[in-house]
Amino acid sequence: MNALFPVPASLVLSGFTTSPAAASTLPLLALVPLTDPTLGVHKVTSHTTHHVVAPPPPVHSDPQHDPIEAWEAVFPQGSINPGNKDAPRGGFGFYLRGPKDFAQELRSASEVLLSYAVMFQDGWMWKKGGKLPGIYGGVGDSAYGCTGGRQTDRCKCFNLRLMWREHGAGELYAYVPQNPTNTEQMTSIPPRSVQNPDYGFSVGMGAWYFAPGKWTVVAERIKMNAVGKSDGEAAICSISRNDALHAFSSGEIEVFIDGRSVVRVRGLILRDETAEDSHVQGLHFQTFFGGHSVEWASPQTQRAYFAHLSGAILRSSTSERTREEL
């Protein structure tokens, strides 16, 4: 099983990858170059770069699978969230749809997998934490900016970036429609999950650890719930609603690290009758230190590398038995 696609090959309907090794194992995948136009990169954060470079060799090299090119993220000493204009700009940020055909298929896909490989340079210093790329989606342009405490149109967007914390502890840092069901499910995931003051959820804190000088493969699977009806009453996404949720089939979010499932959240309502067109739109490819304040800032100038961008449209008519075997 390829860690970029940690599901049975029979579930993959179509997809793409920038990894030649992955393309050779799954004939349905389109092999594409690591370029902005091909991957549908847009809304790039100003004053940051994501140059394609030859990454340094990892501490333990695997020539057959190690990327030979990657996007480089540079974090100057003292850099924080790019929104903090008093600190050096670090990391990068943009949205990524994938190749044109794949982006078109996303509009109607109910289950999607997106993945990448990340390597923090040898000698990396974690400080308090920082953000990593993850799936985003929603209804049209409402899908953008679904973070940072946003309160408007929260029924119409979701954002599933990851975070690193002290000592390389990983977590899913998720913004999902605000309703009691999602809050209950998100905060129930071990080893620890909490709702943050900015309304995002830290899910599965410490469920895995990143290691400097090593390529780590991150994959996210999302299954959109089917939309039911709520007898003509107010939108389910309203934070005051907690009835009639049984009318909605279960949505899911799953995180895989190096092919191993580390976080799986079921029973979610990711769209309702006010947002029936909500769907996965791609990856929010963002990374920075923070938080917003100086205690989050990068303690030294350092670099991280991102490669093997991949995605798949998945077959959803699978049994619970098959899912448990992933």
Rank of each mutant, 00 (worst) to 15 (best):
A211S: 11
P180T: 15
R241E: 09
T287W: 08
G204P: 02
I257H: 02
F102M: 03
P57M: 12
S46N: 11
T45A: 13
K100S: 14
V280I: 08
V203Y: 01
A143C: 12
T187R: 00
T274I: 08
V218D: 02
H42D: 07
F288A: 06
A70W: 09
Q185G: 08
P56G: 07
D277P: 05
G15F: 05
G140W: 06
A109S: 11
K127Q: 07
L4P: 09
T301G: 10
N242Y: 08
I68R: 14
R221F: 01
G290M: 05
T318Y: 13
P299G: 03
L162H: 14
K214L: 09
A247V: 02
L29A: 11
P191D: 02
V255Y: 00
S19W: 12
P55K: 00
F210L: 13
Y209V: 07
F210K: 03
G93D: 04
A211Y: 08
G282D: 07
H60G: 13
P191C: 02
T287Q: 10
L326T: 13
P67S: 11
W126T: 00
V118G: 03
I253N: 03
A143S: 15
N159I: 00
H284Y: 14
I222P: 03
I239C: 09
T25Y: 08
H65F: 12
W208F: 09
Q302H: 10
Y116E: 01
R323Q: 14
A234C: 11
L4D: 11
E233C: 06
E72Y: 06
I236K: 00
Q151I: 14
G40K: 10
E295V: 13
V59N: 10
N196L: 09
L106N: 07
